[in-house]
């Protein structure tokens, strides 16, 4: 998977035609063979753009920054990224007519060591679901998989599951990198930082981290698209995806196979009101 040339051409043309003000893509990090996101405003920098199986980050996260706010943006999205983009559109965070979206029919990306990411091996929607232009040949939807880790979690009782997460989260340093890296965490003032939220306040104790992360995961339940930006950003290397995947499974099973962001205009599972909503499950 190497669309570097195609993307440079498209970006150059978009700038030349005056269709965009900025382009959000990937470039080499400059010291090894890994990449970093880049926000280009100068058409001359287009030549630095790359796109390969090392293009791991979900770029829709940059739509909530001042680099792009109010501007016309060119952007690359893989399958999972496009789902978060769909949610951002539905939740009125970005305007569709300000975006030029290059969708990728994604073959999966690899981590620093070149190993295929776990979420990519289980990916259900590899092709971008929202785009102006598509690169690669679409691969179609795959079946939903509940992997062994999540099955093991589900088998734990409620108390045991809680204890398991409490133990893991003891290593959280409350740096909030997970929140900052999540494209769907865009609140004007995160609830965790509000004064009334005394449960999370004031300290970096294990219990405050537990509450903060639990709340965070619930705010992403039915919305998380499993791009793993958070996990890549976490300096403590916490397996944050376990929380999200556990929620995803419960929601998939209880809300008619709901998967976040796949359908255009569809809100997260918890953000619709129906008398028929199931209420006999615990996350």
């Amino acid at each position: 998977m190497d669309y570097s040339k195609e993307i440079r051409d498209i970006a150059a043309k978009l700038f030349a035609d005056g269709k965009i003000d900025v382009f959000v893509g990937y470039r080499m990090n400059g010291f090894d063979d890994n990449q970093v996101p880049v926000v280009i405003t100068d058409p001359k920098e287009v030549s630095t753009l790359v796109f390969t199986e090392k293009s791991v980050f979900n770029l829709t996260n940059y739509l909530k920054t001042d680099h792009t706010r109010g501007k016309r943006v060119g952007l690359i999205v893989k399958g999972c990224d496009s789902r978060s983009l769909n949610l951002l559109l539905t939740e009125s965070q970005v305007k569709r007519d300000r975006l030029y979206i290059i969708g990728i029919a994604c073959e999966g990306v690899v981590d620093d060591k070149g190993v295929k990411m776990q979420n990519c091996t289980e990916c259900i929607v590899p092709d971008a679901v929202v785009f102006d232009e598509m690169l690669g040949s679409p691969r179609g939807k795959k079946d939903y998989i509940v992997n062994a880790d999540i099955r093991a979690l589900a088998e734990k009782g409620l108390v045991e599951r809680r204890e398991y997460f409490e133990e893991i989260f003891e290593n959280c340093i409350r740096c909030n990198a997970c929140r900052h890296s999540c494209p769907l965490c865009y609140c004007a003032k995160c609830c965790i930082d509000q004064e009334t939220a005394s449960l999370y306040n004031g300290s970096n104790t294990a219990s405050s981290a537990f509450h903060a992360l639990m709340t965070w995961s619930l705010h992403l339940a039915g919305r998380c698209v499993d791009c793993r930006n958070c996990e890549k950003a976490c300096p403590s290397h916490l397996p944050l995806h376990l929380l999200h995947k556990q929620n995803e499974k419960v929601i998939f099973e209880n809300f008619q196979n709901h998967l976040a962001g796949v359908e255009e205009g569809e809100r997260g599972a918890f953000y619709k009101y129906s008398l028929k909503d199931p209420d006999d499950f615990i996350m």
Binding site: E91, S92, C187, A188, Y271, K272
Partner: peptide, 12 residues
């Protein structure tokens, strides 16, 4: 000031 305009409340 705190509202992020997601409009989830509108649908719910």
């Amino acid at each position: 000031e705190f509202c992020s305009g997601c409009q989830n409340c509108v649908t719910v």
